[in-house]
């Protein structure tokens, strides 16, 4: 059985907000390592890989690996019944036809209990090859969200160019064009806002802004985001949390 108690329930609410528009149903794979999820969107253009490590829960117990098939919209509706400061406990039996959720307020005088019906999901697991990326950009997650939103006004795609000087996000559309360049500035006072670039080789890649904007729903989970790129391979957008991560992979756009 699974029993996982999350002191900061708001984290789970934020995680659901970050994935529920990209994918509708997914298996939460529970093991002694923690709770993981991997799913592609319907069009197979983007993939979400989530890990909530066991040490983020107190206590965490999972005797046998379990796959909990969840409709994410339903789960996020139930999670809306939890207060932001509530402690959330997830429980499931080995037969796993329901997921039990308990929300306790911080005064411990209000306890709400919900059960969510689970479903059988035939999901194919994808082997994500270990990749050494040609360019890795680390930047403020809020800045990345702003750039994606701003450029979406102009186009449905963005060209990302990374050189050792900086990273340039450019968009061209019917009404005109726009570009935002962030210079590498590792020694700024505010570490959280620094743009850092590790570069083996300059890259220039095109991606759909609709998906990137969707990924930025993870912004409340981390102040930093990393963009890992190599020519003609999927972009990896990673938000690291205290005990885990949410990674998004996005297939590039190619051709003229």
């Amino acid at each position: 059985m699974l029993e996982a108690r999350l002191q900061t329930g708001a984290l789970l609410k934020k995680v659901l907000e970050a994935i529920k528009e990209l994918i509708t149903d997914a298996n939460f794979d529970c093991s002694d390592n923690g709770i993981a999820l991997q799913a592609m969107d319907n069009s197979h253009v983007a993939l979400v890989a989530l890990l909530l490590r066991h040490d983020g829960f107190e206590p965490y117990r999972c005797d046998r690996s379990l796959a909990l098939g969840v409709n994410l919209v339903s789960l996020s509706k139930v999670l809306r019944c939890a207060g932001n400061d509530d402690i959330i406990t997830l429980k499931a039996d080995d037969t796993a036809d329901v997921l039990s959720l308990t929300f306790e307020n911080t005064d411990n005088d209000r306890i709400s209990e919900y059960e969510l019906k689970l479903m059988d999901i035939d999901s194919e697991h994808l082997g994500i090859p270990d990749t050494t990326y040609e360019a890795v950009v680390q930047m403020s997650s809020a800045e990345f969200a702003r750039i994606c939103k701003d450029l979406q006004v102009l186009s449905d795609s963005v060209q990302i160019d990374v050189t050792k000087e900086g990273v340039k996000f450019g968009a061209k559309g019917e009404l005109g064009s726009g570009a935002v360049t962030l210079k590498q500035n590792g020694n700024v006072d505010k570490e959280e806002e620094a743009t850092l670039i590790e570069l083996q080789q300059n890259v220039s890649l095109n991606f759909s802004l609709k998906y990137l904007v969707n990924f930025t729903k993870a912004t409340p989970l981390a102040s930093r985001v990393s963009l890992s790129m190599s020519s003609e391979v999927p972009l990896l957008v990673e938000y690291k949390m205290e005990a885990g991560y949410i990674r998004y992979y996005l297939a590039p756009k190619i051709g003229e």
Binding site: H44, L126, P129, V233, A251, K253, I254, G255
Partner: peptide, 14 residues
Amino acid sequence: QQTQTTLDSFFDST
């Protein structure tokens, strides 16, 4: 015109 690729060609089904 740019074409949107999919992930299928990059990641192996296991």
